[in-house]
Write a protein that binds this DNA or RNA. Structure first.
Length: 849
RNA sequence: GGGCGAGUGGCGGAAUUGGUAGACGCGUUGGUCUUAGGAACCAAUAUGGCAACAUGUGAAGGUUCGAGUCCUUUCUCGCCUACCA
C-alpha cells in the first residue's frame, strides 16, 4: 500500500488554494464577518517555533470560521522597522531595507509552507513608505488635535555610542553594547497624550470580557487609577518657597505627619544644585543598581533641608523637609507627606532618621496603647490621636470625610491620579518612520505640509556614525517650507506606533489616500480574535487601544471603540537546554542520548552533556528547533498537529521529538485507514443496521466535541479527539456495515479534521471525489439520543458498579432492580435504605445504615 | 513587597453546571511478525493486593448523599510587576 507523501500533497494543495483564491476576502455586507488576526512578526530572518504555534492556532480558527460560512479576514504582514535591522546592517555593512526585505521573502516562503489560510493580497510591511506615509498623516492629525506634543524628558544616554537606550538595553547601569555607564540626559522628545484617555482606557477594560483576565488586570494596574487628594503644605525657611503640593491617598492619616519628602528632581532641587552635599547625595541615589532586586531592597536615604513643612490641620505640627531617593518625580507631584505609622516606606525612613512615629489609626475595638514597631499599620480600623477626625472608620469613612474637611477649609482638593504616563515616541534611530515635522531658524515647530508626504527615509546611507545617522544627512535634513529654511526632525517614531494601527490597514491595505477606508473598517473591525504572546499584554495592546481613541477623537467615525474584541495569549515553545563540560550551550542536534537519561556530545561519545531545565526556545541558549527542517522532514500537517497536541494553547508547550514523530506516524496510519475505508465493501448482515447507527452516533458525538473544543480553544483536546476517531474507525472496519453510510460519516470526519491538518484532509476528501471541505458539518441530534444509559451505582456516595439501563427509568423501578438483581443486591447486605438520591440517567446513590 | 495563575500516573495532559478521576499521546513491559529493527501490529500500564477489595487529584480542615471541581487555612512552583505616596 502506498505511503502518504506529504511533500507532493502539501505542495499540491498550497498551489490549489493560491490558484483558486480560496482565502481572498472581500467586503460583503450580506455576510457575517470574522476578523482573525495573529500578531504580525518582526522579520528577523527565519520563522521560529513560536511563530509556528501562533499562526497554527490562528489558522485553525480562521479555517473553522470559514467553514462556518463567515466572511473571514485573515491577513499577514511585517512589523519591519526596528533596531535589529539597523544593527545587522551596521555589523555587515548592509542596507537595512535590503536586509529586511530579504528576511521578509524568506519568512514568507516559510509561512506559506505551513499552509496558512492567509489572504496574501493584503500583505503589508510597516517599513514601506506605502504604509508609513499614512502614519505620518496620522501624526499630523493628532498634532492638530492636541494629542501630540513636545517636551524635555530624561532618557538613558550612552555616551560612547552617543545614542539613547531603551530601558531593557541598560544592564546594571551600563549600555548593553558599549558597556559605558549610562547617563541621564534631558532631550526634547515627542509624546502622545495617552494619559488624556486614562479614564476611557480603564473603563473600556470592563467590556473586554473575551480577554484573559490576567491581561485586563495588568492593564488596570498599569493605568493605576488612585483616588485621593492634593494638599498644599506651607513651608517655612530661608528659600523663596511658600508651599509644596503633595498627592495622597491617605489624607486621613494627616495627624501622623512627621516629615515631607521630595524627589531629587523636584523643582525645589534647583535651590540646592550648587550645594556640594546635595550633589553628593544625588550621586549616591544614582548608585543604587538598576536590577529589580537592588531597587526593591535599596535602603531609603534622605537629604535633610533646613525647610520646615507645616501640617495644614495642625499648625503646631512642624516637620522637616527631605529629599529622598524613594520619591518619584513622575508620579503625583514628586512630593509626599510622610506618615510612618501607616506606610512601610515612611516607617523605614523615619526609623533611619529617628523621626517621630505617631499612630493615628488603630484596629477597631483595640483597647490600650497602640504602638507601631517594625510594621506600619495599613489595615482597616478607626482614627485616633487626630483631634476632630477621631472616631472615623478607616478607610470607608475617614478618607472621604477628611477630603471634605480639607476642601471646606480650602487646604486641599479631591484628586484622581493616574500612574499612566504619556507615551514618548521619539527614537534617535535611522530605521523607523520619520516624524513629519521640521524646525525653523528659531527652533519653532513647523508641520510638513500634507501634500509633501511621505517623507521617505534617505536610502543607502552611512550607518556607522555616532548618534543618529539621520543627523548626518544634511541634504535630507535641510529643507524649505513656504520659502523658509527649516531643518527636519531627525528622530524617528517608536516602532510601537507602527503596530498600533496595522489592524486597520489590513481592512483596506491598498487604499492610497488614507490609512484606511471608513466603510471597510466599519465592516471588518473590530478584530474578532487577536492571538499573540502575553509579552504584549500591556504596551502594544494599550497603545493600539489608545490609537483607536486618538484617531476617533473629534472625529467619531467608528462604530466601535475597542480594536480587539477577543484576545488569546498563547504560551511559549520550550525545549531542554544542554551544556558541555566547559559550560558552553549546545543545541539539541549536537546532543545524543541512547536511553533518554544520559546525554553525550554527538561527535564525542565520551563527553557527557549536562541537561538543564526546559526553557523557552532562544538563540542565546541554543535550544531552538528550526521549523524549516521539521517541515521538510515531517510535513506541515504533522507539525501543526504536534504543536497543538501536547499542551493547551495558552500554556507553554515542550518540544518533543518523540511527540513530533507520533504526529507524523498518526498521519501515515490514518492514510492507511483512509485507503481501507475507500476500498471497504458493504456486508449485508443482521448487524448492519446496529453498526450504522453506531457510526452515526460516534460521528455526531465527535463533531459535537470538536466543535465545542474549537469554541473553547481546547485545541490539544481536539488532537486527542482525532486519535479517538482513528481508534474508533480502525475497529469499526472489522464490523459488517453499509459502505455508503460509512463514507457519508467519514466525509464529515475529514471535514472536521481539516482546520488542523488541512492538506491531509483535503487530499482524502479529494480522493473520495469530494471537492470541497467548505461547510462545517451539522450535528444531527437524532443520533445523539441513546437508548441505554450507564447509571453509576453508589452506596453511601462511593461508586460500586455501573448499571446499564434503559433511558428515563424512574427511581422506584431502578431501586427495585438493584434490590432484586444479584449483581447489585450484594452491596445492600439486607441493610435498610435510608435515602435514595437519583439523578436521572446518570447516577443513583443509596444511603444505607 | 504587590498582583495573577497552577499543583492530577514515570512524563505531557483529559474531566460543561459538583455526579464513572486518569480520555488521548509519549514512555515502559509482554507478545506477534521479521535476517534484523530504534518499523508495524496486539495486549497491559494510578497505587497496594492472587483476589474480593481498599486507597488515590500538593497538605489540613469544612460544606454536601456525593468534591479534582465549592469554602477556609497552609505549603510549593511558575509568570508578571517594582518604592505609585
Amino acid at each position: 500500500m502506498d505511503r502518504y507523501n506529504f511533500k507532493t500533497t502539501e505542495t499540491k494543495w498550497q498551489k490549489y488554494w493560491e490558484k483558486n483564491n480560496t482565502f481572498k476576502s472581500k467586503l460583503d455586507k450580506k455576510k457575517k464577518k470574522f476578523y482573525c488576526l495573529e500578531m504580525f512578526p518582526y522579520p528577523s530572518g527565519k520563522i521560529h517555533m513560536g511563530h509556528v504555534r501562533n499562526y497554527t492556532i490562528g489558522d485553525v480558527l480562521a479555517r473553522y470560521k470559514l467553514m462556518q460560512n463567515y466572511n473571514v479576514l485573515h491577513p499577514m504582514g511585517w512589523d519591519s522597522f526596528g533596531m535589529p535591522a539597523e544593527n545587522a546592517a551596521k555589523q555587515n555593512n548592509l542596507d537595512p531595507k535590503d536586509w529586511t526585505n530579504q528576511n521578509i521573502s524568506i519568512m514568507k516562503k516559510q509561512l506559506k509552507k505551513l499552509g496558512l489560510s492567509i489572504d496574501w493580497d493584503r500583505e503589508i510591511s510597516t517599513c514601506s513608505s506605502d504604509y508609513y506615509k499614512h502614519q505620518q498623516l496620522f501624526f499630523l492629525e493628532l498634532y492638530e488635535k492636541g494629542l501630540v506634543y513636545r517636551k524635555e524628558n530624561y532618557v538613558n544616554w550612552d555616551p560612547i555610542d552617543e545614542t539613547v537606550l531603551a530601558n531593557e538595553q541598560v544592564i546594571d547601569g551600563k549600555g548593553w553594547r558599549s558597556g559605558a555607564i549610562v547617563e541621564r540626559k534631558k532631550l526634547n522628545q515627542w509624546f502622545f497624550n495617552i494619559s488624556k484617555f486614562s479614564e476611557e482606557l480603564l473603563d473600556g477594560l470592563d467590556n473586554l470580557n473575551e480577554w484573559p483576565k490576567k491581561v485586563t488586570t495588568m492593564q488596570k494596574n498599569w493605568i493605576g487609577k488612585s483616588f485621593g487628594c492634593e494638599i498644599d503644605f506651607k513651608v517655612e525657611g530661608n528659600k523663596a518657597i511658600d508651599k509644596i503640593k503633595c498627592f495622597t491617598t491617605r489624607p486621613d492619616t494627616l495627624f501622623g505627619f512627621s516629615f515631607l519628602a521630595l524627589s531629587i528632581d523636584h523643582p525645589i532641587s534647583k535651590f540646592y544644585e550648587k550645594d556640594d552635599n546635595f550633589i553628593k547625595f544625588k550621586e549616591e541615589c544614582s548608585k543604587t543598581g538598576t536590577t529589580e532586586e537592588s531597587i526593591a531592597q535599596a535602603e531609603k536615604i534622605g537629604f535633610k533641608t533646613e525647610l520646615i513643612a507645616v501640617n495644614p490641620l495642625d499648625e503646631k505640627n512642624k516637620v522637616p523637609v527631605y529629599f529622598a531617593n524613594f520619591v518619584l518625580m513622575d508620579y503625583g507631584f514628586g512630593a509626599v507627606f510622610g506618615c510612618p505609622a501607616h506606610d512601610q516606606r515612611d516607617l523605614d525612613f523615619a526609623k533611619k532618621y529617628k523621626l517621630k512615629i505617631t499612630p493615628v489609626v488603630k484596629p477597631i475595638n483595640f483597647d490600650g496603647d497602640f504602638k507601631i514597631k517594625d510594621k506600619a499599620y495599613t489595615d482597616k480600623g478607626v482614627i485616633f490621636n487626630s483631634s476632630f477626625l477621631n472616631g472615623l472608620k478607616v478607610p470607608d469613612e475617614s478618607i472621604i470625610k477628611t477630603i471634605e474637611i480639607l476642601e471646606q477649609k480650602k487646604l486641599g482638593k479631591k484628586k484622581i491620579n493616574f500612574r499612566l504616563k504619556d507615551w514618548g515616541v521619539s527614537r534617535q534611530r535611522y530605521w523607523g518612520c520619520p516624524i513629519p515635522i521640521a524646525y525653523d531658524e528659531n527652533n519653532n515647530i513647523v508641520k510638513i505640509p500634507k501634500e509633501n508626504l511621505p517623507i521617505n527615509l534617505p536610502e543607502k546611507i552611512k550607518l556607522n556614525t555616532k548618534g543618529n545617522p539621520l543627523d548626518h544627512q544634511n541634504e535630507w535634513k535641510n529643507i524649505k517650507i513656504n520659502g523658509k529654511k527649516c531643518i527636519r526632525e531627525t528622530d524617528t517614531l517608536d516602532t510601537f506606533v507602527d503596530s498600533s494601527w496595522y489592524f486597520l490597514r489590513f481592512c483596506s491595505p491598498k487604499n492610497k489616500d488614507y490609512g484606511y477606508d471608513i466603510d471597510e473598517i466599519n465592516y471588518w473591525m473590530p478584530v474578532d480574535q487577536y492571538i499573540g504572546g502575553v509579552e504584549h499584554a500591556i504596551l502594544h495592546l494599550l497603545y493600539s487601544r489608545f490609537f483607536m481613541h486618538a484617531i476617533n477623537y473629534k472625529n467619531e467615525n467608528f462604530n466601535y471603540k475597542e480594536p480587539f474584541k477577543g484576545l488569546f495569549t498563547q504560551g511559549m515553545v520550550c525545549h531542554e537546554t544542554y551544556k558541555d563540560e566547559k559550560n558552553n550551550w549546545l543545541s539539541p542536534d549536537e546532543v545524543l542520548s541512547k536511553d533518554g537519561k544520559n546525554y553525550f556530545k554527538k561527535n564525542d561519545n565520551n563527553e557527557r552533556v549536562k541537561v538543564g531545565p526546559s526553557e523557552s526556545m532562544s538563540k542565546s541558549k541554543k535550544n531552538t528547533i528550526d521549523p524549516e527542517n521539521i517541515i521538510e522532514n515531517y510535513g506541515a500537517d504533522a507539525v501543526r498537529l504536534f504543536i497543538l497536541s501536547d499542551s493547551p494553547p495558552e500554556k507553554d508547550v515542550q518540544w518533543s521529538e518523540q511527540g513530533m514523530v507520533a504526529s507524523y506516524k498518526f498521519l501515515q496510519k490514518f492514510w492507511i485507514l483512509h485507503k481501507k475505508i475507500k476500498n471497504f465493501s458493504s456486508k449485508n448482515t443482521s448487524d448492519q443496521k446496529i453498526n450504522s447507527f453506531e457510526i452515526n452516533r460516534f460521528t455526531n458525538e465527535i463533531i459535537k466535541k470538536i466543535t465545542q473544543n474549537l469554541e473553547r480553544f481546547h485545541y490539544n483536546v481536539i488532537v486527542a479527539n482525532l486519535y479517538e476517531t482513528y481508534n474508533f474507525l480502525i475497529k469499526f472496519l472489522n464490523k459488517p456495515s453499509d459502505k455508503n453510510n460509512l463514507i457519508k460519516n467519514y466525509i464529515n470526519i475529514l471535514k472536521i479534521m481539516s482546520p488542523i491538518i488541512p492538506h491531509f484532509a483535503s487530499e482524502c476528501l479529494d480522493d473520495l471525489g469530494e471537492k470541497s471541505e467548505k461547510s462545517w458539518p451539522k450535528i444531527n441530534e437524532e443520533y445523539l439520543i441513546k437508548e441505554t444509559v450507564n447509571i453509576v451505582l453508589q452506596i453511601n456516595g462511593r461508586k460500586k458498579s455501573i448499571i446499564i439501563s434503559k433511558k428515563n427509568v424512574d427511581k422506584d423501578t431502578l431501586t427495585n432492580e438493584i434490590k432484586t438483581n444479584n449483581q447489585y443486591n450484594k452491596y445492600l447486605e439486607n441493610k435498610k435504605i435510608k435515602r435514595i438520591i437519583y439523578v436521572k440517567d446518570r447516577l443513583i446513590n443509596l444511603i444505607i445504615e
